[in-house]
C-alpha cells in the first residue's frame, strides 16, 4: 500500500514540522535580544547591502564572510563615525572599484542599455509582429464576391445537405 505509506509519511512530516515550529518559536526572539542593533549598525548594514563583495561577487559585503568584506564593513563603520554620509561612503568605494562594486549598476552611459534594452527589443518585436499580422489579415484587394465564386459541385452539395439533415434529427 504505497498510497497509505505516502500519506503516513506526509502526515509525519507535517507533524514534525509543526512540532519543530513550536519548539523553535522562541528561538528568533532570544536571538534578537542578543543582537544589540544600534543606529550605527543599522546604517552600516544599509550601506553594506548595496556594495558587492569583490571576491565573492554574487554576495553583497553585508552577507559575505570573507575578510575583505569584513574589512570593508569596518571601513564603512569608521567613515560613518567620522561623520561621512552614506552617499560619500558609496562614492569612495565607487572611486576605488568602479561600477562593479555596486550591487545595482548606475543608470548612466552604456549602462542605459541594461535597463532600456529589453523594452527596446520588446518594442521592436511588437512592431514587427503587428506589421506581419496586419499584412496576413489584410483583405486581398480582389476578394471574391458571391457571384464570382465557383459554384458548388453536385457531390459536395449533396453531402452538405445530408450532414444538415442528420444534424436536425
Amino acid at each position: 500500500m504505497t498510497r497509505l505509506a505516502l500519506s503516513l509519511g506526509v502526515a509525519g512530516v507535517a507533524l514534525s514540522l509543526a512540532i519543530g515550529a513550536v519548539i523553535t518559536a522562541p528561538g528568533p526572539v532570544a536571538w534578537a535580544a542578543q543582537v544589540d542593533e544600534t543606529a550605527l549598525d543599522d546604517q552600516v548594514r544599509e550601506i553594506a547591502k548595496t556594495l558587492r563583495c569583490a571576491i565573492c561577487q554574487t554576495e553583497n559585503i553585508w552577507e559575505s564572510q570573507s575578510t575583505l568584506a569584513a574589512q570593508m564593513r569596518q571601513i564603512i563603520r569608521e567613515r560613518l563615525q567620522q561623520g561621512e554620509s552614506p552617499e560619500q561612503i558609496k562614492a569612495y568605494f565607487l572611486s576605488r572599484y568602479g561600477d562593479y562594486i555596486l550591487m545595482k549598476p548606475r543608470v548612466r552611459g552604456w549602462n542605459w542599455l541594461i535597463w532600456a534594452g529589453p523594452f527596446v527589443l520588446l518594442l521592436i518585436g511588437g512592431l514587427l509582429l503587428s506589421r506581419t499580422l496586419s499584412r496576413w489579415t489584410a483583405a486581398p484587394p480582389d476578394a471574391g464576391t458571391a457571384d464570382s465564386l465557383t459554384p458548388l459541385n453536385e457531390p459536395s452539395r449533396r453531402r452538405i445537405e445530408d450532414e444538415l439533415r442528420s444534424f436536425d434529427k
Partner: peptide, 13 residues
C-alpha cells in the same frame, strides 16, 4: 593591517 591600503587601491585579490 586592516585592509585599508588594499581597499584604497581597489585590490580584490
Amino acid at each position: 593591517f586592516k585592509g585599508t591600503i588594499s581597499i584604497d587601491y581597489g585590490v580584490y585579490g
